[in-house]
Amino acid sequence: MDTKMLELKAAQMRLATWNMIYKAGTGHTGSDLSCADILVALYYTVMNQTPQTFEDQNCDHYIQSKGHAVEILYNVLADRGYFPKTDLESYSQFNSPYIGHPTNHVHGIEQNTGSLGHGLGLASGIALAGKLDHRGYHVYTLMGDGEQAEGSVWEAAMFAGNYHLDNLTAIIDHNKLQISGPITQVMNSESLTAKYEAFGFNVIEVNGNDISELVNSLKKQNHTGKPLLILANTIKGRGISFAENKAEWHHKVPSDEQYQQGVKELKTIIGGLKNE
């Protein structure tokens, strides 16, 4: 899939997610829109995992540590054929497996997350198992930047660096906002590059809303002997003008008027990409 098609896919996933959150009246809107391009890059072109090979221990793995951005993950998985898109009509309803954080009751989701600070350790365990068994798979995990305040992240980072897990790529969705406000004001985690380098990672900084940059950095062979940390600079709420860079949209549901405006904006983006 070429870059334009991936960009179109990301815009379509944003629209599907926007619709889902509006209909259900719940969801982590800003976080979903922020990392849409990262998930599209991973699931449509980087990882060798498919619905058919999901159970195969030799295929790539993905652990979504920032579990709250689950709505975009659901839509990507459905679009990739892990389950019917119509399943998502039950999102957030009683007895539905499609709840507000990822669970492995959903085909395509490997580990249950939601409580922050678990993904990097889980991914490190999977990466170490791959090393021990000489399997060729690669492990990806997506964290939030607010999540970096969790101490368990740094226990896992120290472990991954110590074991030289070069089959592990951790991505930080660095939108610089968390639920209470700017990261730098709530709990300043800068410099993440310096911190991860000190913990034994190879760090690459990219525009996390640029599919081309993402794909290039994710596909690049890692010959450093170190785990890779991709600091993906993103915009929270990306794609909806009035939600962009607004902490309040972390877990906000659009009003009727906002919903219609958002649909209009996303359809304009989609139309533009189709016409290119």
Partner: peptide, 23 residues
């Protein structure tokens, strides 16, 4: 043997990942 260092939380989480991969 997998040495985690003095990090009991990570010893459990990493083990979750190891078990997920058949260990």
């Amino acid at each position: 043997l997998v040495e985690i260092g003095i990090a009991e939380q990570n010893s459990v989480t990493v083990s979750g990942g190891l078990a997920h991969s058949g260990k």
